[in-house]
Simulated assay, not measured.
Amino acid sequence: MTQSSKPALLVTGAAGALAQQVIQRLRKDYQVVAVDFRQEVWLGPDIPSYRIDLSKRGFEDLFRRFQFQGVIHLGRIMSSQETRLRRYNANVLGTDRLLSLSDQYGVSRVIVLSTYHVYGANPYNPALIDESYPLKSAGLTMDLVDSVELENLATIYLWRNPNLNVTLLRPCNIVGPGVRNTMSSLLSARYAPTMAGFSPMMQFIHSDDMANAIETAFRQRIPGIFNVAPHDWVSYRQALEECGCRPVPIPSVPPVLPRTMLRALKLRRFPSYLMDFFKYPVIIDGRNFSTRFGFEPERSLDSIFRYYRELRYQS
């Protein structure tokens, strides 16, 4: 068992910029233990860090040693990373083991980070999507099946194991310094593809605000499922232009054509399985989280886009 007098907290996905911001916010009050399947991360002598697969035997040893009181699961492999099988094993089987061990070893607070992508993008989505809307992405693309199954697992534990106090967060596009997802790559590019004839409305949340949302959710024991998003949005094309990026229109039909053109233009930042998200708006309603947790993002769209403009000038 750890010798620290602070309660122990496990944070997965510690190599990511968002996880490191969360760790910095909580390290004063908690004995944080950082875990990532990609690499061991140095965050200071006071934070034990491990490179470990959640499905490996050594992962359970951490629960025995540290007796975690809380778990913040930010280690979801994004759909742009790894193969489908590798993502499924990590996101679904790994998360199942994490939640099972949390229940077995008496963890009393769990945060699970999901994504708004689970709702799916189609022309029949309502103007504002709340947490009761069905998760349709698994029926639209196989590349998001693991994300939906991760959510289903977390929801099962939420209702079946109330002692875990599970809070599941579905954020909109997370962007900002150090963020390496698809949207951040697009906003920071010199040229970015758009689907010709489409410019859906999109939401963006700065990584600082998202870290604040995760910290706020963790400190307040309110289990449930919550969208996390600001109350404003902007068209995708306008977002690119505000960031100083030049849009490159790509024909959307036939379906094989945009993939072929993207390969020819070497625009790999625009994965084919997300094409519908660049055609149809998916605007999530974050009012429930805002009301229940007293949360409001501090970073405006202007400040988000200014960061990417300045980043381009520095390069």
Rank of each mutant, 00 (worst) to 15 (best):
Q24I: 01
D61T: 10
S184M: 05
Q3W: 11
P251L: 03
R25Q: 11
S80D: 15
L9P: 07
P254F: 12
S252C: 14
V253Q: 15
A8V: 03
K266T: 05
S235M: 03
M183S: 01
R65E: 12
R84A: 15
E310R: 06
N161Q: 12
M261K: 10
L257C: 06
R97Y: 09
Q81Y: 07
S184C: 13
Y105V: 08
Y105P: 07
M275I: 11
Q220E: 08
R268M: 04
V11R: 13
G94T: 01
Y236V: 07
L62C: 10
P200A: 13
R219A: 05
Q20P: 02
R246V: 15
L93V: 14
L140V: 04
L311D: 11
Q238E: 13
T216N: 04
G44P: 04
M201Q: 14
R170C: 00
R219G: 09
K6T: 05
F68H: 04
L10F: 11
L164V: 10
R287L: 04
Q39Y: 00
K136H: 13
S235V: 04
L99D: 05
Y30C: 12
G75W: 00
R263G: 04
E215Y: 05
L54S: 08
R246H: 15
I284P: 05
L169T: 05
D53I: 01
V92L: 05
M275W: 05
A127C: 04
G94C: 12
Q3R: 15
A138Y: 03
V234Y: 01
R269V: 06
S49M: 06
G197T: 08
N125D: 01
S207W: 01
L262W: 00
F293Q: 02
N173T: 04
V248T: 06
L186T: 03
D130F: 01
K279A: 09
S80W: 13
G75M: 02
Y157T: 00
L135D: 15
P45G: 09
N163R: 11
R51W: 00
L164Y: 09
T291E: 11
A213V: 06
P162R: 07
V175P: 08
K266C: 01
Q81M: 08
R292W: 02
L150E: 14
R268V: 02
M1H: 12
Y133L: 02
V32L: 13
L10S: 10
P255N: 14
D146I: 09
A229N: 12
R263Q: 06
E310T: 02
P254H: 12
D46E: 15
F68W: 02
S303L: 08
A14K: 01
P177F: 11
R84P: 09
L169C: 05
D146C: 12
V253D: 14
D146K: 10
R57N: 03
R51M: 03
L168Y: 10
L140M: 15
D209Q: 06
Q20W: 01
E298Q: 14
F270Y: 11
E310M: 05
V148S: 10
G178L: 09
A15Q: 02
E82S: 15
R312Y: 02
F278A: 13
R246A: 14
V166A: 05
P126R: 10
M202A: 08
A229Y: 10
E310D: 07
L9I: 07
R57S: 08
S300V: 08
L240N: 10
I47Y: 12
Y280S: 04
S290R: 02
D103Q: 09
